[in-house]
């Protein structure tokens, strides 16, 4: 009895003083880009593209990045992951001309000046535009990351989504900040 009690109390003590928590684990805190890449992958699970957007049932959901390609290395990591019947694809060296081939388009902060052109180029092609620059959502980007209390959050422009013919699940809308415009 006594040895067993000792064992249990020792274990509990070890738990109480161990750094981090039972939820956290020992992994290093993920960088913002890493989080953003994971979020982008998860968005694919909550968003339905129109059927006409894909040539066949198993066509990839391609992710592209415009501008600074810092996110690229993380996106490469999610390449090949599946969501429903589809897999995530990653296309590099995306330009204004080729962006229509993408299903998800990340628009970097550096593209702020060309945003209207980019959005115009994407218009009518059922592209999920994602940004991480303040005001992008209001300007017509469908999902835009922002930090709140040092926590990664995102806002959704439903009008933009509707324009693009994207159906965003209520689940996702429930946890997002809804913005309007333009």
């Amino acid at each position: 009895m006594l040895p067993r009690l000792l064992t249990i109390s020792t274990f509990l003590l070890a738990m109480a003083y161990s750094p981090g928590s039972i939820y956290g684990g020992e992994k290093p805190k993920p960088t913002d880009y890493e989080v953003k890449a994971a979020y982008i992958y998860n968005f694919a699970k909550f968003i339905d593209w129109p059927q006409s957007r894909f040539p066949d049932r198993n066509a990839n959901i391609d992710v592209c990045v415009l501008g600074n390609d810092q996110l690229g290395q993380y996106l490469a990591k999610i390449e090949g992951k599946s969501t429903g019947d589809r897999r995530i694809g990653f296309k590099r060296n995306t330009s204004l001309e080729t962006l229509r081939e993408c299903e998800i388009l990340f628009i970097d902060n550096s593209q702020m000046g060309k945003l209207d052109k980019i959005l115009e180029a994407a218009n009518g092609s059922s592209i999920l535009t994602v940004g991480d620059t303040k005001g992008f959502a209001q300007r017509g980007v469908t999902i835009n990351f922002y930090l709140e209390n040092n926590k990664m959050r995102f806002e959704i422009n439903l009008q933009a989504a509707n324009r693009a013919g994207l159906k965003i699940r209520s689940n996702l809308l429930n946890i997002a900040k809804i913005v309007t415009g333009p």
Partner: peptide
């Protein structure tokens, strides 16, 4: 469970708690 997928996916504890 259905409603909590997003909050769980996007680590939104607040939303989950509210729900």
């Amino acid at each position: 469970a259905g409603n909590s997928t997003a909050s769980l996916t996007f680590n939104d504890q607040k939303a989950a708690t509210e729900m």
